[in-house]
Each structure stands twice: as C-alpha cells, then as structure tokens.
Write a protein that binds this DNA or RNA. Structure first.
Length: 447
DNA sequence: TTTTGAGTTGTTCGA
DNA sequence: GTCGAACAACTCAAA
C-alpha cells in the first residue's frame, strides 16, 4: 500500500484492497505500508506543509503500530519499485491521483513496475466523485460550478468503507528518516492525524446547523477546520458527506463540492495550474511584483482586513476563506499583480495548500477562472471588513498596532487622530482609484 | 439548431 | 441609515 495523500486507515478502499478485506480483494494479504518522501514535492511544499506532513506521517505510523510506516526518501520511480521487489509484491495499491504531477508520476511508476511483473492498482481517490466522472448532457466537463454541483449530487458516491481488521504489516526494507521539518517560529499547527480530524469533525457537527450563517465570519470559529485533513486524506470527504443531513447541511456539502469541482477543472485542464483558464487574460496589463507586493506579503498594506489575513497566513498557515478572497482581490485588482504570484505565496505558507483549490480559487477571484459573475466585482477591503468582522476582533487579533482602537474603528485607523500612533502603516494605494484602474484594464482587454 | 434562463461570495449611488 | 437599481456582455447548460 503506497500512501500518498490518504494518510488514514478508516474508509480507505485502497488499503482494504491491499489487505484483501471488505470485499475489495481476494483474501488476506500481508501489506507493506509505504510512504515515499519525493523531493520534487517535498522541497516546494513550504516549511509549514512539510512540518504538518511530518506530523501526519508520525500519526499514521502510530495508528499502524509496531514499526509504523515504511518511509523511503527519493524518486518514487526508484523507491516504489525497490520496495515492491524486495517485498516480492504482486500488486502496489494506491488511491488514484488526479493532479498534473501525480498522474504523470503514476504512469511512470506503473510502467516501471510492469517491467517486473508487478501491477499498480488504483482504488478510489481523494474525492467523493473522481475527477472526470461528472459530465454534462454533451458528455463534456462542466465549466460552471452550479450545474456541476447539481450533476455531482445526482451522480452520488459510495458509502464509507469499513475499517480494516488487523492487518499483517511487512517491512522488506528499512525506513529512512524524515527530513528535518521544523515549524517556523511562532507558527501554530493543529494536531495531525485521522483521530484528531475525526475529533474535530464530531465537535464541528454540533455547529453544522449554524454553518450557513457563521461560515463567512473570520472572527468566529464557524468553519470545520478540516481543509488540511482533507488535503492529506486524514479524512475522506465521503466520510463527512455520510454524516450530513442532505437538506439542512447543503451549504457544507457545497463547499466539499467546490473542492471536487476545482479538481475536475484541473484534471481536464492541467496546464491551468500555471496558465490562465481564460487565455485572453494573459494579455492584460499587469504590474511586476515589487515593493507593494512585499507589503502585501508581510501584511503592511495599510488596509486592516487585508493585513490581518496576510499575517494570519504567516501565523497559522491558514486563512479564513472570506479573507483569502479579499486579500487575493487586493493583490490582483488593487495592485494589478498577476494571480500566479499570489497563488505561489499561498502555496508556500498554507498548511492546506491544495493545487487545484488554490490555483482555481485565485483564478476565480482574478476573473480569469470559472467565475461567470460580473466583471465589476471588486472587493472593497474596508466594506468587507466591516461586513464580516463587524466587531473588529479579527483585525485586532492579528494586527497588534491596531489593538488600541475599539470595535469597528480597527477597520479605519485613518479616521482617528491616534490611528497611527502604534506604528501601523498608511495605505499604500487609494482603493477607489485602483478599482477604476482595474476596470479600465479589463475594458482594454474586452476591446 | 435555437432559445432561454442563469451565473457563490460585490459596490456604488441616489432616493 | 436603508434599500433598490445599475453596473455589460457573455458563456454555459439544458430545454
């Protein structure tokens, strides 16, 4: 069993197939629990995601017990083949990967294994409905979310798979060490592993009825906080969907469907991990990242809601989705910087950094993605802050220079004589002007 | 093939 | 302070 982004034992069809249990296989087998630390993925992941992955691997090792995971470092092409041969394995089981890199990697590993008479079996995926499955009446992939969601729900998914009974784990080779992966100073990460994810889910289920209201409020704890667990497969979305009331909890199911929609879009258009989904947007006039980009990255734009979000990213490796949209809109529409620069920064720091969701979330905000909505949607950072952080608590939590301002005053230090007495920077741009400029640049594109 | 209705998440302005 | 209209035109999906 080659684990990748499915770091759990429960509801894991590939593992059941490997162990020959649950009707997935043909009788009990010994299983090698393999994880390969691939430098091609490890290095660009950013220290937060690396640290979280290391903790998650340790948690999975504990769940397995005994010698835990068989960890190998290096090119999967070499490592998987070496381990499979040493184990005299007939089959290597995986959950299918639908990302651009993972697909190519798995095809290569498939061929390399085949040379030794070993099969690569793809059982299940990180999604309730595998990318490529949901099609419209013309058998084409959907390009708009809402009809995708209806068809996705109609398509349906399997019930959660049973947990494996005792598995006979085998270790044909010795483990390598996990590379050093210290958490950056001051970064707080949640407890890793499937048990922690299930605890969080059970706790969050009490809040599901309030989710539709509370989910948009970054000052409240209204979200499930499971994005990192979904990213690493510590929990499968199917497990969550099975616990939802289809009527009352549709809003939460819709958020899971967004994740599946973006995976589907990226599956059909793998080049959009880097390139514009709407190619004409490559022609727009942009500003090369410079001092303003640095101010954005470090949370010193002078716009409290934006700066709070950018500092939350660095402090926690996570940002509330509402704030992700606002800071992304600010970079693209107020600073006129291409979305790829912002997306790369997010991927460097997010503990849940998922290529499909991140890149297409950015493209959506930038207007070059799957958004079918009006072009004139430009977020006003102060209006957004007042609307979704009405008490100012979120801003004060991450921006100490504004803690002396009470209530909503934290959103507009420029209106107060003592607004800047604690070192908070002045606004680096005039939002009203840059909004007009963004619309003008779009108009040029249309012309 | 043509037509029709709809499209996550907004902002501004004037009544 | 609140509320509704205006802000373009286009693409997508299905009837």
């Amino acid at each position: 069993m080659w684990f990748r982004r499915d770091l759990r034992l429960r509801d894991n069809p590939a593992l059941l197939a490997a162990a020959g249990q649950g009707g997935f296989g043909d009788g009990p087998s010994a299983v090698v629990p393999l994880f390969v630390i691939d430098p091609a993925l490890w290095k660009p992941s950013g220290e937060v995601r690396r640290a979280y992955l290391a903790a998650s691997l340790a948690a999975l090792g504990s769940r397995i017990g005994g010698d835990g995971l068989l960890l190998r470092r290096g090119d999967p092409l070499e490592q998987v083949v070496a381990v499979a041969r040493a184990a005299k394995a007939d089959v290597v089981y995986v959950a299918a990967d639908f990302g651009p890199y993972g697909r190519a990697r798995d095809d290569l590993v498939d061929s390399a294994l085949a040379e030794h008479g070993i099969r690569l079996e793809r059982v299940g995926s990180p999604y309730a409905v595998a990318p490529g499955r949901v099609r419209n009446g013309s058998n084409e992939p959907y390009k708009v979310y809402s009809p995708f969601f209806r068809a996705w729900r109609e398509h349906g998914w399997r019930a959660p798979a049973p947990s494996p009974r005792s598995v006979r784990w085998e270790y044909p080779l010795t483990s390598h060490d996990i590379p050093t992966s210290a958490v950056p100073d001051g970064t707080e990460l949640p407890t890793a592993g499937e048990e922690a994810a299930m605890r969080r889910w059970r706790k969050f289920q009490d809040s599901l009825d309030d989710y539709a209201e509370a989910r948009d409020r970054p000052d409240l704890d209204g979200t499930s906080q499971l994005s990192h667990a979904l990213k690493w497969g510590e929990v499968h979305p199917r497990t969550l969907l099975a616990d939802l009331d289809p009527e009352r909890h549709e809003v939460y199911a819709k958020e899971l469907a967004w994740r599946e929609f973006y995976a589907d879009v990226l599956f059909h258009r793998p080049e959009t991990a880097r390139e514009y989904l709407r190619a004409e947007y490559a022609r727009m006039r942009y500003v090369a990242p410079a001092e303003d980009f640095d101010a954005w990255r470090s949370g010193r734009t002078g716009f409290p809601f934006v700066d709070a979000g950018m500092r939350q990213l660095r402090a926690e490796g996570w940002v509330h989705n509402r704030v992700r949209m606002v800071v992304a809109s600010f970079l693209v529409k107020d600073l006129h910087v291409e979305w790829q620069h912002g997306a790369r920064h997010f991927m460097q720091w997010l503990r849940d950094g998922d290529l499909a969701s991140n890149q297409h979330g950015w493209q959506w905000v930038a207007g070059c993605g799957t958004d079918a909505a009006p072009y004139f949607r430009v977020f006003n950072p102060m209006t957004q802050g007042l609307k979704f952080d009405p008490s100012g608590d979120y801003v004060r939590r991450y921006v100490p220079e504004l803690r002396h301002l009470d209530g909503k005053a934290a959103h507009s230090p420029w209106e107060f004589l003592d607004g800047y007495t604690h070192g908070y920077p002045e606004r680096i741009v005039d939002h009203a002007e840059e909004r007009v400029e963004a619309l003008a640049r779009l108009a040029e594109l249309k012309a």
